[in-house]
Computed example of a mutant assay.
Amino acid sequence: MRSLLVLAGSLALGACQPAADAAETIVAAPPAERIARETGELKTAIFAGGCFWGVEGVFSHVKGVKSAVSGYHGGAERQARYDLVSSGVTDHAEAVRVVYDPAVVRYDELVRIFFSVVADPTLKNRQGPDIGAHYRTALIPIGAEQRAVAGAYLAQMEASGKWSRPIVAKIEPARTFFPAEAKHQDFLAKNPDNRYVERWDRPKIAALERLYPAHYRSRFQRG
């Protein structure tokens, strides 16, 4: 019984939830020196950076993004469930799979937006009020070109002096991405009055519009 109570407590603490004792910093990240050389058809990339609701929400407002799907990356299929992932007992990260048109927005531009308004690259295993390895911040590039851009940008961020603490965001090898349950998809569009959304995610979208007006799309692109 005690172990069940402990697990229940960890589930409650691990889920995306509002809190008043943490703050997030918006940083105008530098333009990438290593520009993504992408042409042709739609591309896919995966980003992990805290609760997937906000990651999905921001990318769903970026011009050129065709879909943003919340899910789980880095663990086994049998454990790819919100109750398990949010408890911290799996190897997954909450992540978002982004499909985008490189003729409209390049991978390096998505990475810059990500580290400007979505995820603080100096926080290890947390973002905002959400704490645990499943909330780690990672770029998950797909293919050699994205890997080259991701590695160069992390190094550029470290050297830029924009952040007062060391960059701890990582690059993770691409593994199977498991879409999250239906209730987590398009969460901001379906739950605009959710307390967590109002406290943590709306400010990120406002920052996207303010810092990157050329990339901002007012319409939410449903995944």
Rank of each mutant, 00 (worst) to 15 (best):
K183L: 12
G88F: 11
L123F: 05
V197E: 12
V89P: 03
S86W: 01
Y153L: 11
V98S: 04
R195G: 10
F187M: 08
L110P: 00
D186I: 02
V98N: 00
Q146I: 07
G161V: 05
P173K: 10
V105L: 00
I113C: 00
L84G: 06
P166E: 08
A144F: 04
G128K: 00
A169W: 01
Y107I: 03
I142D: 10
Y196C: 11
P102Q: 05
D130M: 01
V104Q: 14
P173V: 09
E145C: 09
F187V: 06
I131S: 05
G128D: 01
E77N: 08
A138Y: 01
N191W: 06
D108V: 10
P173G: 10
R81A: 15
D83Q: 12
F178I: 13
R136W: 00
F178L: 11
P102R: 08
A119K: 15
L139N: 05
I140A: 03
R106T: 14
Y196H: 07
N194M: 14
A180D: 12
L154N: 02
D120T: 03
G143R: 06
P173D: 15
L188N: 12
I140E: 01
Q79D: 15
D108H: 12
E109P: 04
A119S: 13
I113W: 02
R112M: 03
R81K: 15
V149S: 09
V104F: 01
E145D: 11
E109C: 08
R106Q: 13
A95E: 12
A182K: 13
V168C: 07
F178A: 13
P192K: 08
V99T: 15
T122F: 05
S160H: 04
K162M: 08
D101V: 11
V149M: 09
Q79G: 12
A155H: 04
Y196N: 11
Y135M: 06
L188K: 09
R78G: 12
R126I: 09
R78V: 14
K183C: 04
L139D: 08
Q79F: 10
A180E: 09
T122W: 04
G161R: 05
K124I: 11
P102Y: 06
R126K: 14
R199T: 14
R136M: 02
F114G: 02
Y196K: 06
L110W: 00
P179K: 08
P166G: 09
S116Q: 03
P192F: 05
A133T: 13
R165Y: 12
A159T: 03
G143I: 05
Y82I: 15
V197T: 13
A80T: 09
S160A: 06
A119T: 13
H134E: 11
D201I: 14
T137A: 05
F178Y: 15
Q127I: 02
V98P: 02
E198L: 13
V96D: 09
R136Y: 01
F187S: 10
V168L: 05
I142W: 07
Y107D: 04
N194D: 15
